[in-house]
Nucleic acid binder design. Sequence first.
RNA 1: CGGGGCGUAGCGCAGCCUGGUAGCGCGCUUGGUUCGGGACCAAGAAGUCGGAGGUUCAAAUCCUCUCGCCCCGACCA
Length: 664
Amino acid sequence: MEDGIVVVHQDPLVRLPAFHPEGMNPFFLECLFDGDYERLHVAFGASRADHEVARVVDLAGHINDFERLSLLVERDAGDGQGEFLTLQMRPLTFLSFAPTLHVGAFGVPPEPLSRGHGLILSLTKPHQYSNREFRGIRWRLSFFVMTLGPLREKGLPPRPVFVLSVGIQFVVQGVLEMAEEKGKITPQSEDFPQWYQDVVREGDLAEVAKVVKGCMVIKPHGYAIWEKIQADLDRRFKKTGHKNAYFPLLIPKSFITKEAEHVEGFAPELAVVTHAGGKQLPEGEEYVIRPTSETIIGHFFSKWIESYRDLPLLINQWANVMRWELHTRMFLRTTEFLWQEGHTAHATHEEALEEVIRMLNVYGDFAEQMMAMPVIRGLKSESEKFAGAVSTYCIEAMMRDGKALQAGTSHDLGQNFGKAFDVKFQNEEKKVDYVWQTSWGVSTRLVGALVMTHSDDTGLILPPRLAPVQAVVVPIYRKSKERAEVVEAASKLRDDLAAAGVAVELDDREGKRPGEKFYEWERKGVPIRIELGPRDIASGEAMTRLRVAEGKEKMKLETLARDLPGVLESFQGFLLERAKKFREDNTVSVDTWDDFRGVFADGQSKFVWAHWDGTTQTEAAIKEETKATVRCLPIEGQGVDAGPGACIRTGQPSRGRVLFAKSY
RNA sequence: CGGGGCGUAGCGCAGCCUGGUAGCGCGCUUGGUUCGGGACCAAGAAGUCGGAGGUUCAAAUCCUCUCGCCCCGACCA
């Protein structure tokens, strides 16, 4: 492998040295990127000295859409054989990447690859980094034989062909350093997922736990947001008659298997406790860490409920749950997360359905009123519904990249869990029946939704109603004599604001300059900053700046405490309106399959109202081709024109438009 | 299962090829000058170089084994 590692120049030049794959003659290939990838010179031959230069490929014009770019390169061999090189280009995914270089021999029996044979090359451009500075970057290129074997037909000549897959690994050094630069937030437009990570980090919301796979540490500032979410939701739950309770973290494994769909849905992501007290638990007595609590709550409901007089039973639990996820992202999908799960039991299906819709609306109202996040309320398709539910309702919000985030769910469980856990009651007609259950929940994912709904390239933006710090006072002074005076006035202002009900913080830390404090609080999403210096005190005013404002605004010190709550409220309203407008601007109704695909091309997403024939197969086909899924079937008043139409994909009849988008 | 990369100070990394005093940036501590949009100067603290074994007068560096993390691939180009 020693020969496979080459350090290349900045021009950037890539050289593939000779290699000796099994059963092949020594073979040499050289690629030379010209300037900023505008030209690619390809040469190959049996030895380095012997190589012939193939035609120069002009990449200009294709450089920005490298995805599946195919180039046919005819070789100037002069022997009339028509050998060629095909270059397939795809964008890179991340820092360390290993694009595959496929070298296939065409039109020849699987004999030693040498001059005169065509090649398929699959190279990858460092797309993600093209917008960043490449200064100081060192490229290291190594390659290795990965597979060697017959290639299946797939549009290739019916003659014997074989493929040699060679992986290339570039190691790009010096880029990560830039990304981790202090206070650095990658622009949304450049790399949205990276932007999200940066905002969460710089906003001091959370960090990846690292020592525990897939988990995160929610830091004080992030947890404070969750506490505000909890406090308000809890009030709403109480108001609708629910009571809090707490059920065990561990659930007997046997419980999970009682509801057929439920076990199928959750089995892959369960964490199982097999040992306890220094001993292995007997077979069949293992526990799972709850992924959700329908089963254990069903068990207890069956003990608590005897007659219709015990109904409805309205319970909520604040808890942590664990789902073993392969790919995790802070707040959006982590192995362990915090949530609330409501569980209710009712005498009739109608009553249960009312509950399902009631709680869906509680979530919807909360999202819009508190989070300033507009949502669409709807019904999940069969493939997206909760494992074990009859139907699942949801609220879907649009993130700033046009993708949809499921922000809350409310399930009609029918009698599925009632039957599985024998939750029976005697009704008013003295007949025994199974209860009708519901469950509904929202999680710390809401914090991620908050980030992706409002924040910008400067960092976090928090709606005042959920901001742990709504206003920050930054004192400005020169000499230590000024400091005493200014801090005193600032303290008084802080006290006045606190008395007016504003969550205010006075940042009188020494050793940090005002500018640095400004940036820090902006990254943390504080809605308004108040600057107080000697000049302001003299004039009886303070400089204020809203988190999204262009400039600063003077406000009278006298009336600041009185006026600020109003300012914050209007900022709350502004954020909601802005989010609504963003969603409107990125929502379309589409009637043709070509238009539909166009919306989701190039990794883009919007909200799309389109007709769908209602079948799981069509849904799967659409997802396969566009990555977009049915987010929900809108409930009354949530969709666009409600009339029937023809499925966008199959032309089959559709009862009404449903919401499509790519999703988290 | 196959292949690759990486483990050196809290964080990000250099040093390894060619063995010889443990380095850099950020952060942190102290002092001073600063302070209306990311300050500067000076001094300082901080590392069993992932682990074990070997070669050597001498190992972060060479060899063998091992642990951990990340990425890619298994015929889709």
